[in-house]
Each structure stands twice: as C-alpha cells, then as structure tokens.
C-alpha cells in the first residue's frame, strides 16, 4: 500500500494538481446535493491533529473522511500529551506506532508538519503550518478559479492583506505562478515580508520557465482594474498592537474591498477570501452580496478537495468517481 504526504504545494506538479482538481470536481455535485456516503476508505483512520484553532479545515477534513468511510479521530494540543511537554517527534513516533493511516496536522511552526512527517511512515497532510504552508487551501482555491476560467497562463490575481504572516499567500502564490498566473501582492511595507523577492519563482522553482511573475504594489486602486481575480486575506486585529498597521479603520480605507473598489474591479473578475473574515475591515456586506464573490464556493470546494486528497494520500484516487 503506498501512501503519499502533502507537506508543501511544491510537492505537486501542475499535472498532479489538475488530477486532484478533477477528482474534487467530481465530488462537488454530490456534496452540493447534501453529501454522500461510500466505502472508498473504509478501514482507514484519519487522525486530525490540530495544535491551532480551525473551523473550516478541521471540519471539512472530518466530514470528507466520514463520507469516505474513514474512522476520524480528533486531537488538539489541549487535553493531549502536548500539554505535558511531548515533542512533535515523540508525538509522531507514538501515533506511528498506532498505525494510523493518515494524519492531518496543523501547527504554529512553519516546519512542524515536515518534522512530524520524518517520524511517521504513512500519509501526513499539512493543514497549515505556521506562516509557512497551507497547501490544501491553495488547492481548494484553485478549484473555483479553474471553474471561473482564471487558472491559466497570463491571468492576473492580486493577493491583498497581511502577507507577512500568511501561509495562505505562500502556498497560493506557488500554485498560481506554476500555472502561469501573474500574482500582484498588495500590502503596506509593514505587512510584506522583508526579502519578499524570495517569493519570486526565480528564487524557489527548480526551473521557473513558464511560471507567472510576482510583483508588489502598495496601491490597491491602481491594481484593481487589471485583475482577473482578487484574493482578500484577513488582517488580525492584533496587528495594531504590534504596530504593523495604524488602525483597522485606516487599513480598511487603504486596503479594504469597499463598494468604491468593487466598481474598479472588472465585471469578469472573481473575489476570494479563505476566511475567517473580519467583516467591515477587509471585506463587508457588499462583497458577500456581489455576484463575483466565490467565498462560499471556496468552503464547499474545501470539502470536495479534501475528499479527493484523502483518497490520493491512501493511493485510492482512481476509484473516487466509481469509474476506474
């Protein structure tokens, strides 16, 4: 039996991404029809190991697992041996000895999931590691983008918000540029990572030929008219406390997707937000009411994508549509 782990979006080729998106797309109608129950992964266990809070990721993995017939088990940092000081390595060795098939893990350190995977013999799926990677978010974002015809060469997407502290940005940027999209990062200098040039494909891709470009702008208004998609990220209110932003009101004026800015965004463009949102800060009611908004599609896509990914991680992707 062959297991596969997903630690970083760089673990996947665009071909494998498309394969996963195809499988996820085949689940969508069944999920939209109220869910399904099959036995694809009957007898498999999925352990959801979350050191950090989560609503969407955790519940969509659990739902996906249950629909596929898996036994799902939840462990949080609270109430587990993590509280007694058990290290990630020892936790991995312990769970490995229980022969869990899949571990879905979220942790506050960028390298914790990779560290765990070194000591775990079967599949490890990264459900968000610090400011490093959140590959399943990038994949689930790619599905509505593909359906909207945006996931292709020379399309232009802006990622707006707290880019310094965002794992969502890092995984999305790598997936999107590998499909040839140009990514415009929009943020004030205080919310950009120092050395942001390290995000350009020339820095991290083995062969950046055919990859899209990465640029940075502080001027949201000027970027908006040329976009095919805009991805808004949450700005944590704590960022005021550590002086990254002046105040949420001013931030909202400079970088919020306001009614005025919605008019600058082309009719054909789409709007994404990985959630959770700060209503009234980066997005407001106008965005949710806008026909271009795909925020709820993203959530549904999350269940479909994670269903496909669980099958993929256990070497069962072929059987998912009942055809193969």
């Amino acid at each position: 039996m062959s297991y596969r782990s997903l630690l970083s979006i760089l673990d996947l080729t665009p071909g494998e991404v498309n394969q996963l998106l195809d499988a996820a797309a085949s689940y969508l109608p069944r999920i939209e029809a109220g869910g399904f129950k099959d036995a694809t992964l009957k007898g498999y266990s999925a352990l959801l190991l979350f050191y950090e809070a989560s609503t969407r990721t955790r519940s969509s993995f659990e739902l996906a697992g249950k629909m596929l017939g898996m036994d799902t088990i939840n462990i949080g940092a609270k109430g587990s041996s993590v509280e007694k000081g058990e290290t990630v390595r020892d936790t991995a060795l312990t769970l490995n000895a229980m022969h869990h098939n899949v571990v879905v893990m979220r942790h506050e350190a960028p390298d914790a999931v990779a560290l765990f995977a070194r000591y775990f013999d079967r599949a490890v799926l990264n459900a968000g590691s610090g400011r490093g990677q959140h590959p399943t978010q990038a994949l689930l974002d790619a599905l509505p983008l593909r359906q909207a015809g945006v996931l292709q060469r020379s399309k232009r997407i802006a990622i707006v918000g707290d880019l310094k502290h965002s794992r969502v940005m890092r995984s999305n940027l790598q997936l999107l540029t590998s499909f040839g999209l140009d990514v415009v990062l929009v943020a004030p200098p205080t919310l950009m990572p120092e050395g942001w040039e390290g995000l350009k494909p020339a820095y991290w891709a083995a062969d950046p030929t055919g990859y899209g470009e990465v640029s940075w702008s502080t001027d949201f208004d000027r970027v908006l008219p040329g976009l095919d998609a805009v991805m808004m990220l949450r700005v944590q209110r704590e960022r005021m406390g550590d002086a990254h932003i002046t105040n949420t009101d001013e931030y909202s004026k400079l970088y919020g997707l306001s009614r005025r800015r919605l008019k600058l965004l082309p009719e054909s463009a789409v709007i994404l937000h990985p959630g959770p949102v700060n209503r009234g800060v980066e997005v407001g009611e106008d965005v949710f009411a806008d026909p271009r908004c795909l925020i709820n599609d993203q959530v549904t896509s999350g269940v479909a994508l994670r269903s496909a990914l669980l099958c993929w991680s256990c070497g069962k992707l072929e059987g998912t549509d009942g055809q193969a």
Binding site: P110, G132, G195
Partner: peptide, 15 residues
C-alpha cells in the same frame, strides 16, 4: 536572517 529565505519559508526573521 530576515530576508529572501525567511520570506519563502515563513520563519520569523532577525533583522
């Protein structure tokens, strides 16, 4: 070091 490598990896930097 706070620079290109930390920006890519997502680790906190030392300026």
């Amino acid at each position: 070091h706070e620079g290109r490598a930390s920006a890519l990896l997502g680790h906190d930097g030392i300026h």
